[in-house]
């Protein structure tokens, strides 16, 4: 399949040029810095020599066709790939200068700092309250019940869900609609006060109205968090992000200001993708 894609892409001039990333992949004062990262699943390489900076209090959108490695890249940032037995990561990945893959780095603490929201809403089989209180409880963030209440309410407010659920905090999280469930998952992530939130196609399972609410929310969250979002929707990337990175077959092809990428892509493949010629 990989070959098929390559040859198809090869029919357009200059498409096989995976040599170097085009655009501004490195920036000053980055929250997360990735240098020359390779990711393997067993023998198969999923990410090739990728260098990318993720800016503080910015939203970066990772776009590209299915199987291009953008979700893999996202999951290497908080070591969620540790749960996959034969996954290997090499290169340098740092969070505020600390090596993410250092032996001294505890993946559990890392994930408290780099939270994650998944493609399909996955509330725990618990009440709405307990879903949000889950993280603060395991990290001992609240010293009293009143404090925990406050964390839960603030998080729900920040996720724009509080008004809708304030009368039924004890109802099961799964009783909410899909869009509400996803906002609950975001509230759950916010509740542990992470520094970075990774979102893996957070709106792909939602209807347009719920999607619009989530997008608005992402824009608001930027004030307090650094956000990296994987999305298949070009419009969504254009609406919510400041920077956009285009992945193709495990290579980071082009990075730049979102407005620039969507109006003036420099790489032929980026242009083909955003104009819908393939992908």
């Amino acid at each position: 399949m990989q070959q098929g894609l390559t040859s198809e892409a090869g029919s357009v001039a200059g498409l096989n040029n995976f040599e170097a990333t085009i655009g501004e992949n490195l920036i000053d004062d980055a929250k997360i810095s990735v240098r020359h990262a390779d990711v393997f699943y067993g023998e198969k390489q999923a990410i090739f020599d990728t260098s990318l900076d993720i800016g503080r209090n910015q939203v970066i959108a990772l776009i590209g066709p299915s199987g291009c490695g953008k979700s893999t890249f996202l999951r290497t940032l908080n070591r969620m790939n540790d749960t996959i037995a034969d996954c290997r990561v090499s290169g340098s990945l740092t969070l505020d200068g600390e090596d993410i893959y250092d032996k001294k780095m505890d993946p559990v603490l890392l994930r408290a700092r780099v939270g994650m929201v998944f493609q399909k809403p996955n509330p725990f089989p618990k009440s709405i309250y307990d879903n949000v209180a889950y993280g603060p409880r395991i990290h001992g963030l609240a010293r009293s019940n009143a404090e925990l209440d406050e964390i839960v309410i603030t998080s729900l407010e920040k996720a724009g869900l509080f008004e809708e659920v304030k009368d039924r905090l004890t109802a099961p999280g799964t009783s909410l609609s899909g869009g509400q469930q996803q906002r609950l998952c975001i509230a759950r992530t916010i509740a542990v006060s992470p520094e970075v939130i990774l979102m893996d196609e957070p709106a792909s399972a939602l209807d347009p109205i719920a999607t619009a609410i989530i997008e608005e929310l992402i824009d608001e969250l930027r004030e307090n968090f650094t956000i990296a979002i994987v999305t298949h929707s070009m419009q969504q990337a254009a609406r919510v992000s400041q920077r956009t990175a285009y992945f193709h077959l495990g290579h980071l092809v082009e990075v730049g200001e979102t407005s620039r990428i969507f109006t003036n892509p420099r790489h032929q493949m980026t242009e083909n993708y955003i104009t819908g010629k393939f992908g």
Partner: peptide, 11 residues
Amino acid sequence: AMRDGSLGLGA
């Protein structure tokens, strides 16, 4: 997804 959700919160 349940396990991922929990691990993703630093559990």
